[in-house]
């Protein structure tokens, strides 16, 4: 990689929900093609952090940068709206509850953004949808409606929908938490495949095993702060902080 600028950079991110400080000044960056897993107990702020990269949460302090462009820059309402819509097209976001559009078919779910936002021709968009669905192993479901799909299939379509915008990064917010255990693997498999293609990814997860397998770097968060970060090997086998140790212990035992 000749471009050494980080793909995502977060500096001093702070966020309050009422009197509660959920992000207490977070700094971290993700290099091009790097895969970062964020772990931590629930309420640690990991989802809020991920959502603020996509500006679904507005930070009260600090900066978020994507590929050299500040995401949360100060602009007047109208200019910011234009700016954020452009930035978001370069980020794929995958939600815990899939958030597929139930009134649209699988094909329409995937093509609506390329057609309406990039002005892509319908035939071309459908070909693209087919390619993306092929990637997630669901080409045969192209004309189905979301209500007909299993949870795992829904999430794979949601991933295809995000990929169809050809994003620079993919953000996964507990993508397998809402799935029945036997459906988790099919989604993990798709994510691993993306990893092998060097997609830049930030994965918020509670699956330690998966984080260890797929991530280049793991960040452990607790109480709105980064407690410790490092390679999976360092963090999982040899955690330096007591907080990390007790979390991992509880997790592996329970």
């Amino acid at each position: 990689m000749n471009d050494t600028r980080p793909m995502i950079e977060v500096r001093g991110a702070r966020k309050f929900f009422g009197p509660l400080e959920v992000l207490k000044g977070i700094d971290f960056s993700v290099a091009r093609g790097q895969i970062v897993a964020v772990i931590g107990p629930s309420g640690s702020g990991k989802s809020t952090l991920l959502r603020s990269i996509n500006h679904l949460e507005t930070l009260d302090g600090g900066e978020v940068w994507l590929d050299g462009v500040q995401v949360n820059q100060k602009l007047d309402r109208r200019s910011f709206e234009r700016h954020i819509n452009g930035v978001r097209q370069q980020m794929g976001m995958v939600f815990q509850h899939f958030n597929l559009f139930p009134h649209l078919s699988v094909a329409e779910n995937i093509t609506i953004a390329p057609i309406k936002l990039k002005g892509m021709a319908k035939a071309e968009a459908r070909a693209l949808a087919l390619k993306m669905l092929d990637k997630v192993g669901l080409a045969d479901k192209i004309d189905a409606f979301p209500a007909r799909l299993s949870g795992g299939q829904k999430q794979r379509v949601a991933i295809a929908r995000a990929l169809a915008m050809q994003p620079k990064v993919m953000l996964f917010d507990e993508a397998t938490s809402a799935l029945d255990p036997e459906l988790v693997d099919e989604v993990n498999l798709v994510m691993k495949q993306l990893a092998s293609e060097h997609m830049t990814m930030v994965i918020v997860t509670h699956e330690m095993r998966f984080a260890a397998e797929v991530a280049d770097r793991v960040i452990f968060m607790a109480d709105g702060a980064v407690v410790e970060e490092g390679s999976p090997a360092e963090l999982f086998r040899n955690p330096k902080q007591e907080r990390t140790r007790s979390f991992l212990k509880k997790f592996l035992n329970g």
């Binding site: 097209q89 939600f95 958030n99 559009f101 953004a113 936002l117 995000a162 915008m165």
Partner: peptide, 12 residues
Amino acid sequence: GQMEAARSLGFG
């Protein structure tokens, strides 16, 4: 989540 998903794709 529907509004969020649409916004995250870049829709206004």
